[in-house]
Simulated scan of single mutants.
Amino acid sequence: MFCFLLRKCGALGYDLHNDESRLVLSISVERMGKDEEPDNIESNQHTQPREEPSWLSTWLARYFGKLPPYDFSRGGLCTQSLLTVLKANAADRGWRSLEIGGLLRQIGSLLNRQREDAGVCIRGSNRIEDRTLGSVWSQTFEVRRALLVGLCYRDSLQLQGSWNDVEDMQSWLESENIFKRFEIRKLVDKPDGIEPCYVRREEILESLRWLLGGSDEPAQLLFHFSGRGDGKKLLPSDESPQDSLISDFELSEMISDLLPRNTTLTCIFDCRDGTTMLESLLGRQHVLAFGTTKSET
């Protein structure tokens, strides 16, 4: 009871690190200088297309084996840079053999070349830098589930690209046979016709319970959130009051209580404050971080 009260008041986390029976991995990329952004714009997403790189720079990058540029205007910084790196490591090079430490460095290199001032953060529940992506996203699991949430908040916040992030992530996951279509659940606030559509707090929580507690068998799970974050809280799209937001502690509690043994869970946070999500669950021991500096030239 004492530990429960400490957790509820925020004085004690769930501290899943070094639990060898379960692996939780958190990936996030966050644009820096977010205090300069307008109040109604998410710092991880552009609202206007940015200038495309020239054909010469694109050709030189590909010829010399560097990562290709990505479309800034398509979606969130985390999703689009992550997918760019994964696709660049396809076929002959193979993303499955890419170590997580290498994934961090390649995302950082891509953002540096694109003159992005950003932070990259990958957290793990145990030592992760030498693990390969193939060991995390293995095809040997019989139970596989993915929850993809993409919220654009059309009535108020006017984010750009969260729906694209979900579609792009689903397309890549299916193309690489990480998850099949029937193993993926999507929540988007894309309107059907002229009627507004909302993804409410309880819909997200119910889907998280489906993701984490669908069975007691070992599983490969993925949670991808592209939307608005604020103060280590994930925002539903129905303009919920503050006490209806999904906090880091609430999410950490669900994972700690529901995640089966011998299961891997990957969380991708494409939102403001995403780089600090799951601190209460994973602690600060196994953290890989990479900071980039925006070039003024």
Rank of each mutant, 00 (worst) to 15 (best):
L208V: 10
L133Q: 01
L208K: 01
N126D: 15
L56V: 15
G150R: 12
S252W: 01
Q139E: 08
G134P: 02
I268E: 02
R209I: 10
Q114Y: 07
D238I: 00
V166K: 03
W137P: 04
L157C: 03
N112S: 13
L104P: 06
N177P: 01
I204C: 05
T293N: 01
V120A: 13
L67H: 02
G124W: 01
M1K: 15
Y153V: 04
R93P: 06
T84H: 04
Y153K: 00
A118R: 10
L173V: 04
S125N: 07
R145I: 01
P68K: 12
L157M: 01
F2N: 12
Q80W: 05
W55A: 14
C152Q: 06
M254Y: 08
R145N: 09
E183Q: 13
L82D: 03
Q158H: 15
P260W: 04
C121V: 13
L6G: 14
L281Y: 05
I122Y: 01
P191A: 04
E195L: 07
K8L: 14
F225N: 02
R50G: 12
G274M: 09
E129Q: 15
R145T: 00
E167W: 09
S81L: 08
A90V: 04
F249L: 15
R131H: 06
I204A: 09
D257A: 14
